[in-house]
Nucleic acid binder design. Structure first.
Lengths: 143, 143
DNA sequence: CTTGACCCTCCCATCATGGGAAGGTCCATC
DNA sequence: GATGGACCTTCCCATGATGGGAGGGTCAAG
């Protein structure tokens, strides 16, 4: 299979397949004489694996580790579970953070007339700044 | 106030203050002869505004609009509310998405022994891929 | 007048992804 | 056997908000 066929078979774009090759995550099984990438079922399954893991919000770094465990027939499931649990905790933390934002905003929006007049509790809050206790962290986001 | 004092007064890093200047969001009130940025209370308040808005997860694009409404004494609160409500909807959507991920993972993790044996429902799921119905969208992250 | 703390601009990196240009390859149809 | 279109290749650039750092100028206290 060339890259386009692999893309259709796996649901991963050709662009991303090239990227995974570049970072050494999934290498083509071979190259044709004319330098085309060739993939077989093994790689297709790995690409599907990655796609599914991405859809569960794992970062590429986590996926790299998951994929290497997946390839290792003797892996201890403990390691897989640890990665998953860590990711669950990350998700929960981000969910809580966003829920707090949403709740604050819901309250402010509820108090806002939303008409032609300029008075607005939302802007008032942003002005007064109910001091964001935590200086907004720069946390790299993952899907 | 120079940029360092403005940073301490507003809680925004000097680096970001330069960035906001560059993108035209908050310009210094003046430059000294030696080209140092100078800020006064007005800008400090705007920087605090931005910081607070960021902590509520607004994107810079939304903040640009919020800030221009904030500056406009004749703004209709309707417009502010519309931005906030849209953002709440965005947050809710992302929360729901992440909760679905977390729930799926919680289930899988619960079913995983997490010991020395290689059998692992987490990897099994990633392999089978309970077909991610929505091709994982490339949604620019904000927060 | 030196020293250290500050400021300036400019460049690079992040992370996963897409867009696009310039050029080579393959296959089917004329 | 040529031509065209669909495909492949590599390479570069952009995203959003943020940090890091180099190389060089400025200021104020000692």
């Amino acid at each position: 299979m060339n890259i386009g066929q692999a893309a259709r078979a796996s649901g991963v774009t050709a662009k991303m397949i090239r990227y995974y090759d570049e970072i050494g995550l999934v290498r083509p099984s071979a190259r044709t004489e004319s330098n085309y990438r060739e993939y077989d079922d093994r790689q297709i399954n790995e690409l599907k694996f990655i796609r599914r893991a991405r859809s569960l919000g794992f970062s590429m770094e986590e996926i790299t580790r998951l994929l290497s465990l997946w390839r290792d027939r003797g892996r201890p499931s403990r390691e897989v579970k640890a990665i998953a649990d860590k990711h669950i905790a990350d998700l929960d933390a981000r969910i809580a953070e966003m829920q707090a934002m949403a709740e604050t905003l819901r309250h402010l929006s509820h108090c806002c007339a939303g008409d032609d007049r300029p008075d607005c509790p939302i802007l008032a809050d942003l002005t007064e700044g109910s001091a964001p206790s935590d200086p907004p962290a720069h946390r790299p986001r993952r899907a």
